[in-house]
């Protein structure tokens, strides 16, 4: 449970570990029914649409002003987004 939480980038409490383990075990137990199907030769279907992605011309269109996007950041210093130290102790995402 802790491994999955960590891969999901979630910090969960001991109480949550117990609750989620119980609830997700129920759900995964239910999913086991899929394994009883004969899927020999059945190709995965990732997308219901029959058409491939359409490409558009690589032309400059309307776009957001820099400030409109940057202004959404919760913490800034001048033109930069502020984050904790990335390199060294305490960093390493």
């Amino acid at each position: 449970m802790r491994k999955v939480a960590s891969l999901s980038r979630l910090a969960i409490t001991d109480e949550q570990v117990a609750l989620y383990r119980h609830q997700l075990s129920d759900v995964l137990g239910y999913m086991e029914r899929l394994r009883r199907l004969d899927l020999e030769g059945v190709e995965p279907l990732t997308h219901a649409g029959d058409t491939l992605n359409r490409m558009r011309e690589d032309e400059v269109g309307a776009m957001l002003a820099n400030e409109a996007a940057m202004g959404l950041s919760p913490e800034r210093t001048g033109p930069f987004i502020k984050v904790p130290k990335v390199i060294g102790d305490g960093g390493g995402a």
Partner: peptide
């Protein structure tokens, strides 16, 4: 650090059902 920022922001920001589905 940065990893704490990710994990704690997401744990505080997402409710239990969203957390369950992400996991």
């Amino acid at each position: 650090g940065l990893l704490d920022l990710y994990c704690r922001s997401r744990s505080e920001g997402f409710g239990p059902e969203v957390q369950r589905r992400i996991m």
